[in-house]
């Protein structure tokens, strides 16, 4: 077991920065595209054609051009928490004509904030990527739909809350999410923390569909499409799940009810993606703030972690790889 663990550690160093979703472009090195993206910090959005030319003219392949555009948007545009809150509140408050009238004014404001401050909410990111791609001759579109994270679309009947992109490269369509690749919101401080996340660039569609469900299901880009219901009620995944290539096997739903004393096996598949060196189960008891590590058990590409629930209550159960959350379930023990 110890030998196995050290083998895993070595693999994890080798695999750093190589993600399965980019396997079609294994021969491509994005160093040049990334360095071009870094040459134009906070460049004016007054004329997107000029910016697009600067980012893509020195590059020869479409995938590199798109990478430079995507990277530039992610490292130069910030999420605006105030716009997010206003949008959310007004959408729940207004209906019909009042909503349409407000939407028009709000849209104008979102784009003037974007131009003036390089700050926006998800549609602004997706719009910029699409338009910059348009100016370099790439076929890219905005995809609207449901995103799923700790504070959105966990259970329920679904609220369309997000926009991302699909892009055609070498005759095939790929998915990416510039909003989620740009950084994250610190929920407590309600501020944006900039951090480029590669996991949402040309992501393997099966993994991408775990936290993105388009309004038009043709943009799922997988043959066997999950239903919206299955998507909304599946175990919760995180960015790290995409990095590690984690897909839950069992239980199949986020919320599960068990009798006291039941042993539950949490199983998942691990496809292409980063290797890991540690695997743990964390249990968060809703009545106390205690959380503790349980155990690990691994075999080939599917893994199973078990826990016996001895006490009544509602628990968040987390599967954690190398300290990063990859799966969460909510278990009610009766």
């Amino acid at each position: 077991m110890r030998a196995c663990a050290s083998a895993l550690i070595i693999v994890s160093f080798v695999a750093t920065g190589v993600y399965g979703q980019l396997s079609d472009f294994n021969g491509n090195d994005f160093t040049k595209a990334d360095s071009i993206a870094e040459m134009y910090p906070r460049y004016s959005l007054g004329n997107l054609k000029v910016l697009s030319d600067k980012l893509t003219k020195p590059l020869s392949t479409d995938v590199e051009k798109f990478r430079a555009i995507f990277k530039w948007v992610c490292i130069n545009v910030e999420s605006d928490y105030a716009l997010f809150v206003e949008n959310k509140n007004m959408r729940s408050k207004l209906k019909g004509e009042k909503l349409s009238a407000w939407e028009k004014k709000f849209s104008a404001r979102v784009f003037s904030v974007l131009t003036a401050k390089h700050r926006t909410i998800c549609t602004g990111y997706a719009y910029l990527v699409k338009e910059l791609a348009f100016h370099s001759g790439l076929n890219c579109r905005i995809v609207d739909g449901y995103s799923r994270h700790a504070r959105a679309n966990v259970g329920g009947s679904g609220i369309a809350n997000h926009s991302w992109n699909a892009v055609e490269l070498q005759g095939k369509w790929y998915l990416c999410d510039p909003t989620w690749s740009s950084g994250t919101i610190d929920n407590e401080r309600q501020t944006f923390v900039k951090k480029f996340e590669d996991a949402y660039f040309l992501t393997e569609p099966r993994l991408f569909s775990q936290n993105h469900y388009p309004l038009d299901s043709q943009w799922i880009l997988v043959k066997v499409k999950p239903s919206l219901q299955k998507f909304l009620h599946a175990p919760l995944v995180y960015s790290a799940s995409l990095r590690y290539g984690v897909e839950p096997l069992a239980p199949t739903s986020f919320s599960i009810d068990v009798a006291r004393g039941t042993r539950v096996f949490f199983q998942f598949n691990k496809g292409r993606g980063n290797e890991f060196s540690s695997l743990a189960l964390y249990l968060e008891n809703s009545r106390t703030s205690d959380a503790f590590t349980k155990q690990e058990k691994a075999c080939n590409t599917s893994y199973s972690v078990e826990h016996k629930f001895l006490h009544k209550g509602k628990y968040a159960v987390h599967i954690v790889m190398d300290g990063a959350h990859v799966l969460t379930y909510e278990v009610r023990v009766n």
């Binding site: 849209s107 909410i121 998800c122 995103s147 994270h149 959105a152 989620w180 994250t184 929920n187």
Partner: peptide, 22 residues
């Protein structure tokens, strides 16, 4: 073709069953 604004943010925080003070 104008663009309908949808407003999600980059969120990757861990799910919790607890209600924070805020």
């Amino acid at each position: 073709e104008d663009v309908t604004i949808i407003g999600d943010l980059a969120a990757d925080d861990v799910y919790t069953t607890k209600t924070g003070l805020r």
